[in-house]
Amino acid sequence: MNLECQRLTEEFILELLNKKGSVGEIIKDNVVYLIITALVVLMIGSYLYVQNNGAGIWGSFYAQEIVSIVNQAQVGDSITIDVGRATRIAKRNGVPFESIFSVIPASNELCISLSTSGKNCLSYFNNVVPEVKLDLGVPGNLLTINVRTR
């Protein structure tokens, strides 16, 4: 029985050694599939990461909220909103506070970045220049939007 077992093991090892060259060939043949699989896994992983830590949904919410305010504002207005949740999510994701809210006056665009992997942007149609200022712990974290003339 022991001899039989030893013989079978030897045969198996020999078979593996004979197939050594074909393992490389199998990988070479399927390199395209491996690259696609890696890309799909990366895409799904980053999508779930951004969605489930709240950065996607809350980034979109704050962008809509602030653009709605800017679109209805008049020159000289100063509006303050609580952005406590946005700062918490940004801190968790390692985003510096000064780069959460950004305004690009040249293209009338406002962007919210709550994760390092992406930002949410919307354009405002009101022909004004909003200046955003983040005040931390006043109490709470507040964002002041000062509306200036273009």
Binding site: Y47, L48, I57, S60, F61, Q64, S68, F125
Partner: peptide, 26 residues
Amino acid sequence: VVAGNTIALGDDFNYKPLDAAILNAQ
């Protein structure tokens, strides 16, 4: 994955009706 995530967390809020209404008011 996208469908499951959308069912669990909900779809994005449709901002366009509000956006059109604000422009109309302006």
